[in-house]
Design a protein around this nucleic acid. Sequence first.
RNA 1: AGAAUCUUCCG
Length: 232
Amino acid sequence: GMELRDVFVACVRSGDLTCARRAFDSLPERHLICWSLLLSAYAKRGCFDEAKALVEGMPEWDLVSATTMINLLSERGCPKEARGVFGQMELRNVVSWTAMLSGFARNGRLDEAEAMFDAMPERNVVTLNSMLAAYIQHGKTSVAKEFFDSAMPVKDLVSSNTMLSGLDLAAAEEMFGSMEAIDIVSCNVMLSAYAQSSAADRAEKIFESMAHHNVVSATAMLTAYARAGDVE
RNA sequence: AGAAUCUUCCG
C-alpha cells in the first residue's frame, strides 16, 4: 500500500516541496535517504534557507548527502565552504571529487578545478566532461580542443555537445556536420550559435529539422529572430 | 527512494 514515505517521494518528484516538507515531518522514521532527497530538492530549486535549516537538523551524513552539500555551497558561490565539507568527509569518491572540480570551475577558479582534476585518484567520463566544460567556461577554447582531442580516453554525447558549445560558428558547423550522433542539446547548441550570429535563416533550418523541441530550443530560436531584427 | 558533467532565458 501507499505509505507516507511514498507520499513524500511523490511530492518531491512533483516539485511540491511544501507538501514534501509536510510529509517529511510526518514520517515515523526518517531514513538518511529522506533527508538527502529533501536536501537535494532544496538545492535544485535554490531554496538555500530551507536547505540550511534542514542541514541543522540532520542527524547523520554520508557520501551522497555531503556531495549534495558541496553542490549547494558551490551553487551558492561558496567554494571555500564546499572545500571545507569535502575536506571533512570520511569517504570520497569520483562523484564527490567531480562535484568539487565543477564547483571550483563554476566559481571562476580554473586553477583549483585543475588541481582537483590532477589530484583525484579516479576519473570517469563525467569528470572529463566537467574538466572540458571548465576550460570552455573560462574561454580556453584551444586548451579545450586539445583536451577533447588528446586527453579524453572516453567520451559521450555530452562531451561532444560541450566541445561544440565552445567553438566558433564555422568550427561548430563543421563539427556538427560530422557528428555521428546528435540529440536535442546538440541542436540547441547550434541554434544558440546561429542566434549569436544573428543567422535566423540557418537557425530555422536546424529548428525545422528537429524531431522534438523543448523550451531551450524555443527560446534560442526566438533569440535568433530577435537578433536578426524579425521580432519587435 | 538520495549525489557530480553539456545547450536558451531567468534567477
